[in-house]
Design a protein around this nucleic acid. Sequence first.
DNA 1: TAGATTGTTAATCGATTAACAATC
DNA 2: TAGATTGTTAATCGATTAACAATC
Lengths: 212, 212
Amino acid sequence: MADKEISQAVIGRLPRYFRYLGDLKEKGVERISSQELSDIMKVTASQIRQDFNNFGGFGQQGYGYNVNYLYDEISKILGIDKQHSLVIIGTGHLGKAIAGYTNFTRRGFVFKGAFDCNPELYGTMIRDVEVRPIEEMEDFVKKNKIEIAVLTIPKEQAVPMAHKLVECGIKAIWNFAHVDLDVPNNIQVENVHLSDSLMKLSYNINRYENND
Amino acid sequence: MADKEISQAVIGRLPRYFRYLGDLKEKGVERISSQELSDIMKVTASQIRQDFNNFGGFGQQGYGYNVNYLYDEISKILGIDKQHSLVIIGTGHLGKAIAGYTNFTRRGFVFKGAFDCNPELYGTMIRDVEVRPIEEMEDFVKKNKIEIAVLTIPKEQAVPMAHKLVECGIKAIWNFAHVDLDVPNNIQVENVHLSDSLMKLSYNINRYENND
DNA sequence: TAGATTGTTAATCGATTAACAATC
DNA sequence: TAGATTGTTAATCGATTAACAATC
């Protein structure tokens, strides 16, 4: 039914709106204008209105936006009103850190399985989930119709693992390995390249020291 | 001396170029044209040339780019030819995961200190660094002229901690807390908001299921 | 030299901002 | 109603792509 495509620039801003609206909600704020939100978030009011209007107008002239309503609508757009099952592949510190984010559970991400290739870890528990041998991953993902795989394994293993996951019917990969995955278009990939992020930081330190 | 400002869009692409050039280097590739690199990286050759020319032409007409030279030049631009000292604040799984990235060491990021507020962790070792009480952070950062602080603590503590760090003369904060920090302009902040990233993934799963 | 490929200018595309009519 | 503030169109800005002259 192909609605007009929303740019990833807009999508990328939604979680931030969501975060601020959650804060306002907690503070008991009922309504907010694009101008007020603009002051808090340091983006233009114009951009805020344009962004929301991509999804068809959540405000009311002369009033502004109802915080609760807007919050709920954004959560629907982001799809975090539904549950998403998730497995973690690679149970090093990073895998454990992610498994431990109770926030994710609150957002509907249900931690269903954990896999590793280190036999010493088999049977150990991460939260209420048992670490299983990586060989059992394929069956598990298929049987439980897992939607999201979190890849926290070394880059050498990430590419073949991504292929396996695709074959098992995974819908999305949250990739922490320092490599770009090559998967079909219908598989969603979100990369978190920590070393890229640190290099940007390094650049900006340098830039400041040399230029300004 | 204010060279003309390079857009963050360009900077954001440099680490990825660097990654691919490193791979080519390892494979023993000596030269590469923007067109060849374009095929591998799935970006336009035009963008590649424009990006590099922001820094003043690393190639040669009729030849292309020398892989080793380009790799080195990008590493200089990113400032990873120099060493940067770094402390980790918050030694949960995430802090430990980051400390453990041997890659960072290779890129010149030197892990100098780790701090936590949990007394049970004081004195425990992360790699060759001892976990210290958070109260000792300020002295340590000042004395050792630490440049980068990695914030892997809960968001409630992140904002006051950022202020303290600024007072201690930190140059940059790598922020993993789910909150935007408000620091002076001369302090570089690079945010890694994992929950934002996961929400984008969730949106894209939804989008694909509903639209295409 | 001829062919290849950059560096760079010009054209296009998309995203952001400004402005204002619509409307609560 | 009058004032406020959205929704939306138009104007601007910046980033990407295309084209080609310069040059190795």
